[in-house]
């Protein structure tokens, strides 16, 4: 028996976990539609990514009235699409953070050979539960604290102080989405950054996130309506 018979035959996972606000306020101004479009695009892009250097695994936690695993952690190449989320109820961000921490600490779901995870939070309002305790627990936890965290503030009512605290990527700042298109642009920027990282020689290192480049989608009609 050769040594190579003991080798893994899959690339190391690159985990991406989205915390998506699906509270009632997201129903206004086309925000939930834009979020659904952005997540669909992200799934489609990740599914088509090469698995040569890293295998992107995607999970989505929604928090609208309740926090739940909307998309359980799944290798992206196995995804064919994603159902649209509905906007409803309160904003239980604390419960969502608890779910996220539990997942990131789970060594069966995310083995230690995985690359440092990416955690994305998109929200348009103020949390309606205690988010600070779960957030501090996440920051103090062994593995979850190591995730690269990006945050998106949707609209003028977003809790920017909380989102700024959440965002920890040194190369970028909290992104503001004043309209539906900006939501899509943010997720496109995250998608491009993760995809670049998964293709790089060293997926352990974060790839810069570039919001400006994400605005150039050759397939998009540049019309304001």
């Amino acid at each position: 028996m050769a040594i190579k018979d003991f080798a893994m035959t899959t690339a190391r996972p690159l985990p991406v976990l989205i915390l998506a606000d699906t509270s009632g306020s997201m129903a206004a101004d086309g925000k939930i539609d834009a979020l659904n479009q952005a997540l669909r695009d992200m799934v489609q892009s990740f599914a088509a990514e090469s698995r040569l250097r890293a295998e992107i695994h995607l999970g989505i936690i929604t928090f609208g009235e309740t926090a739940q695993f909307y998309l359980p952690f799944t290798p992206a190449h196995r995804l064919t699409g994603i159902d649209a989320c509905n906007a409803y109820g309160s904003t239980p961000l604390g419960a969502a953070m608890e779910l996220a921490r539990g997942l990131l600490e789970d060594r069966d779901l995310i083995p230690s050979r995985a690359f440092r995870p990416v955690l994305v939070l998109a929200s348009d309002g103020h949390p309606t539960d205690d988010w600070e305790t779960p957030f501090q627990t996440l920051l103090a936890s062994e593995r979850a604290q190591k995730a690269t965290r990006y945050a998106l503030a949707i609209g003028n009512d977003a809790d920017e102080m909380m989102l700024r605290e959440f965002h920890n990527d040194a190369e970028s700042t909290l992104f503001h989405a004043d309209d539906a298109r900006s939501i899509i642009r943010f997720f496109r920027a995250v998608t491009m950054s993760v995809a670049n990282r998964s293709r790089s020689q060293n997926p352990a290192q974060s790839a810069p996130i570039d919001y400006r480049k994400a605005g150039n989608n050759p397939d998009e009609l540049d019309l304001d309506f």
Binding site: A2, I3, K4, A7, M8, T9, T10, A11, R12, R51, L52, R53, A54, E55, Q201, N202, P203
Partner: peptide
């Protein structure tokens, strides 16, 4: 022989140096 095994490591995307 060991070097050949390490060079031919079959895990997709492996990029690290390898020593045994």
């Amino acid at each position: 022989a060991l070097g050949r095994e390490l060079h031919a490591w079959p895990t997709p995307g492996h990029s690290d140096d390898k020593s045994l």
